[in-house]
């Protein structure tokens, strides 16, 4: 089906969706079909569902979340006390489905607990980074002039330091690394991209008529930014947030490899992987592959979702 340009306000579910007048002439009703009952989110959902890989991505993420957070309730293991009598069991031996690691932890249970940290850090860091970055970028773009220049030079300055360097430096400075430190440092490295993206969008959005209308009606800057600019940039924001989760999981893994992961007995997939790597050369392959595969699958899944969302949200006007 084809429809005309979608009114921006209605795209966001704020304010009433503009409806073709009931008593409009027949030819106008032909031009504007009954999309008013469907809403743009619904359209976006349909495009998203057509994207087969994106649906697979959602399936994988749902499975991983259930596995990590509900799994331990069903498959109960001890993940705090070590038992060296249980060291290095092969998979499927003595009741350990995926075997056990160098400290005698059951690897299946460890995968669940480690996944909790990886997913929690990924989601929380992406949420914090996106929220802060979006507000920063929108304010900078909306304010314009000198404030914009100063705010963006700060972004440039932080971006000029390679991400991993900054991450490593912050982790050293803030050690010992807890889950909160992990979330914070990943967010500090990650907020710059949404800030830049949203600023660029804001520069075009602030000249729109509806923003001028709000200004004329006496709307304050905060209202314009929060109710009009941010919702209209939501496509860019959501897509980027999805990729942020994937990147955050990889960043945490990298940090664990560099020896600045979370302190035991807590763990995450990256830490399991980099710990297992030390024993990989001795033939204990099962210490490495489950965690590695879990990371790859989850990161791929979030990338699939991001691609699907981009198709669904960003080009919605061209597609339908």
């Amino acid at each position: 089906m084809t429809i005309g340009p979608v009114p921006q306000e209605s795209a966001l579910g704020i304010g009433p969706i503009s409806v073709a007048p009931v008593d409009a002439p027949a030819e106008i009703q032909d031009i504007v079909p009954a999309y008013e009952t469907r809403g743009v989110w619904r359209l976006a959902l349909e495009v998203f569902l057509e994207h087969r890989l994106a649906v697979i991505g959602v399936g994988i993420v749902v499975f991983m979340v259930l596995f990590c957070f509900v799994g331990p309730l069903i498959y109960v293991t001890d993940q705090t006390t070590t038992n060296l009598n249980n060291q290095f069991f092969r998979p499927a031996v003595s009741g350990h489905i995926l075997g056990s690691d160098q400290l005698g932890f059951d690897l299946m249970g460890r995968l669940m607990v480690g996944g909790q940290t990886s997913i929690e850090v990924g989601l929380a860091a992406a949420l914090i980074a996106t929220t802060f970055g979006v507000l920063y970028g929108a304010i900078s773009g909306f304010a314009g002039g000198f404030i914009d220049t100063v705010m963006m030079r700060i972004v440039d300055a932080v971006l000029a330091v390679p991400g991993l360097f900054l991450l490593l430096f912050l982790a050293v400075a803030l050690a010992p690394v807890t889950i909160w430190v992990l979330i914070l440092v990943v967010a500090i490295v990650a907020w710059l991209i949404p800030a830049r993206l949203v600023r660029a969008e804001t520069l075009t959005l602030r000249t729109r008529e509806y923003v001028q209308a709000v200004t004329m009606m006496g709307g304050r800057g905060s209202r314009i930014v929060l109710r009009h600019i941010v919702p209209n940039a939501i496509g860019t924001i959501v897509v980027n947030a999805t990729f942020q989760v994937a990147d955050a999981i990889l960043l945490v893994a990298a940090l664990s490899f560099l020896g600045l992961g979370i302190s035991p007995p807590a763990t995450n997939w990256g830490a399991m992987l980099s710990d297992g790597v030390e024993y990989y050369a001795d033939g204990y392959w099962w210490l490495v592959y489950p965690a590695g595969i879990a990371i790859v699958i989850t990161v791929v899944a979030f990338n699939f979702i991001g691609d699907g969302l981009r198709d669904a949200l960003e080009v919605r006007l061209q597609k339908r």
Binding site: A246, L250, A253, L273, V288, I295, V296
Partner: peptide
């Protein structure tokens, strides 16, 4: 390319 892109670098190296 998705696979390599989603892989922790150090694991690929290993």
């Amino acid at each position: 390319s998705f696979f390599f892109y989603s892989m922790p670098v150090f694991w690929l190296g290993i």
